[in-house]
Design a protein around this nucleic acid. Structure first.
Lengths: 188, 188, 188, 188
DNA sequence: CATGAATGAGACTTCATTCAT
DNA sequence: TATGAATGAAGTCTCATTCAT
């Protein structure tokens, strides 16, 4: 594997284990099995690895969607599956997403993340557009604006649930169902 | 003003200007006009000032709600006004909320923030409960769960808008209207 | 002794022993008997100690002049004594002056050194002015310009001699005499 | 051009722009258009390029002398022209000479520079010798010693003038004239 | 001869924390 | 309580040098 990829993977691992601020460059290079100076050949700082991590996270989201959502089913079912996909990936990679959500609030890199998140936005946008054409959702919906609203809605709800280690499975299931009802109703 | 209050205000100011990680204890004491050692008489670290900041932020949210929401009007109007209140305070204090949202993702303090956020949750919870009793929203709504969903929905949408300096007023207005429609429909 | 003074003395000592570039901040603080961080309370870098060193060197020059030059004697004798003073101090502190001459060529600090060297310039200027009034030197001399020429002449000659460890005493004596003749003739 | 020559020229360029200590090997190889490791095939360190730079500088001095001094004219005119030549080259290459003067004070390489400077010393030495034979200067002059004194005198005066960016043309002209008078008088 | 990615020792600088006053 | 000079551990980053190709 090339060294850049090694650095990215080691950084994700260390960020998850120790948090962004708690991670030292020396932790990263140790985990990556490279020399201290080598890190700086590829990135000027640990923060500049963040976009790569965001790309990885969005890839994971998209993979989760692909695995969970059956495009042949009804719109309602696809919404359920989509929410399930978001919940699942947030559960599996909760530390990773905690890092991303915290980092997202640092506006300096927002522009970059706009483009990194694009595949997710687009997927939801297309879903809504198709549903609009099929008359499956109310015609007053603006697909572009609503795709942003939906993504924020799903992620904020998932975040609330999974960042608490103490949340029970029943609790999560109940909140999932509430969110599904809420969303379907919102789009009707 | 007593020194503790001075420290809290100086910390908010510095966190907003330089970010949490970028703020040094020496910045805070300089801004507060106190000696370096004095800080430690009140707080063990800059992070331990965070709950005070969160309290301040929730106070600001509640003030914005009180100013914007007329409890005598219809449920639909109250929802509109509530969203307006959330948008307004996110606009006015966007750096402050950026800090909070970033901090929220660090699960260590989530428990504390649960209780700090309580007034806001409760306000929305009561709003929903009353609407349920008046038959103004669908009866399948769980007021407690939905209050969390709504708060996440409103704040994530506002955050997306205001953390971009480049978002236009028209864009914000349009997104506001989309969100109002979305929310009303969700609760119907 | 206060810590700033300790730093200055330790820096001179280390610069002389190891050269400017060869001296580490850690060498200075070790020699000064203070903590690493303390250095930065007083100076932002080792280079910023240079003006203090230049002041010290000019003090040494002026002390050497005071010790060697008898103001009551004839102009010719005072010139001889002045050159002797410059030679003596260049011999005694050759490493210190080597550092200064090297540093002088870095134009960034020249303005500062102008003012630090002022006492020496002024002393020579006054000497020439008095001699002009007494008719001891040719009237076509501009005291201000010639003071700069003389200082350059004396220091460059001394520098050439003392920076070579191998220069013999006889050689130095002969060059001293040649320089005295040269200077007297120049001013006649 | 061969790579060694490329390295020398690139080093001069970089030393002038960034100073000796501020220049990295990587700057040199970039400017020379060669690979990092290639530098070490020709020089063991950046400092070891210094003698080559000194040779270049002395070549420049000698060229300036050849251009400015008409050997057929009177001794007084030749002195004027010589000083003009030194001033001119110090003006044109002030950064280069700043580097040399600073480097000269590092005694380690003085021996080498003795021989590099030889052509300049010799030229002045011959000038003085000839003038002695023609009775154009006082017979008490030792040509060898005085050639060193003169070179120090000219260069120190020029250095003082040109290292200050702010020195005016009039000021330079006046100092030039004072130096010419001074020198002629010294040799009479 | 030439390359240039990789190395890693080590200097620099910061800054939370202490403690004598 | 309050002060602020001093501390020194710890992390960042640089850059000369190497060596497999």
């Amino acid at each position: 594997m090339n060294k850049k990829q090694k650095i990215i993977e080691a950084t994700i691992e260390q960020f998850i284990n120790k948090g962004v601020e708690g991670t030292k460059i020396s932790d990263i290079v140790k985990a990556a099995g490279i020399a201290q100076g080598t890190f700086y050949l590829y990135f000027p700082s640990k923060f500049s690895v963040m976009p790569e991590i965001a790309k990885y996270a969005v890839d994971e989201i998209m993979k989760s969607i692909e695995e969970n959502v059956n495009l042949d089913e009804s719109f309602d079912q696809k919404i359920e599956q989509l929410i399930k996909a978001v919940f699942q990936i947030n559960e599996q990679k909760k530390e990773l997403f905690a890092i991303l959500y915290a980092g997202l609030a640092q506006s300096e890199h927002l522009k970059q993340w706009e483009s990194i998140y694009a595949p997710f936005y687009e997927w939801v946008y297309n879903l809504l557009n198709e549903a609009l054409q099929n008359g499956e959702i109310r015609s007053t919906i603006d697909a572009s604006r609503t795709s942003r609203i939906l993504i924020g809605l799903f992620e904020s709800t998932a975040e609330q649930l999974y960042l608490y280690d103490s949340t029970t499975t029943e609790e999560i299931q109940a909140q999932y169902e509430e969110l599904v009802k809420f969303t379907k109703s919102a789009l009707k």
